[in-house]
Design a protein around this nucleic acid. Sequence first.
RNA 1: GUACACUGGA
Length: 248
Amino acid sequence: VFVLNKLIEMYGKCGSARHAQQVFDEIQAKDSYTWVMLISAYAHNKQLVEAKRFFDELPEQCPVASNIMLSAYARAGYLEAAKLVFDQMAEKTPVSWSAMLSAYFQNGHLEAAKEIFSSMPERSITSWNAMLTAYAQAGHLEDAKLTFDSTPGKNLVSWNAILTAYAQSGHLQEAEYLFAQMPAWDLVTWTTLLTGYTYRSQLEPAAALYADMPEWDPYSSTAMLTAYAQAEHIDDAKRIYHQFPEQD
RNA sequence: GUACACUGGA
């Protein structure tokens, strides 16, 4: 079952829910992973009706499956449906709470996001990060910073999220200051600062940062490529294109 | 041993 579950997951990520379904159908001893992988495959391929069909056929309650449906509805803009799934959950996990928080702010309801954040039984690091992002995307940079400062046990996502808040609002100096303070860096960190430079048409620092990065991925390379393209540095853009990193 | 959520490009 383990290997077949992995196969369903793989088909789902390749965008082939049909093949995922075929594997699912042939599995005799389905476990909760089997169901979740199939529902996830449909959900991530925007086939919400199919996802719901199997969600309803689940032999027993599964919080992970509910979380997937909740997020999928929210991403598609069906906030009411997301809320319904959330309310009907017998056992809400920390993921359920942060997913619901994200559901609200993704659909423009900052107040509701704040309410759920304050009414949560326990605030996971993910919920702190989601709240920070909600403020940032609503343009409330001060509140985002306050949230960041209050976050207990900050992880790399927390740091990247506040960096994003500054970089995307054009506050490059604050972003650079944060960057220097960070306890660790990853591809998200570098790409965030890189696009911050690009946003302010600072091609040279962007290029210098890109050259100093210890590794690259399609996201970072695309960012650099479009930065060069926008500045009409076609030869540099070509160079990036021909060195494009592999995707795993 | 495998699943869901929070941060980066187009």
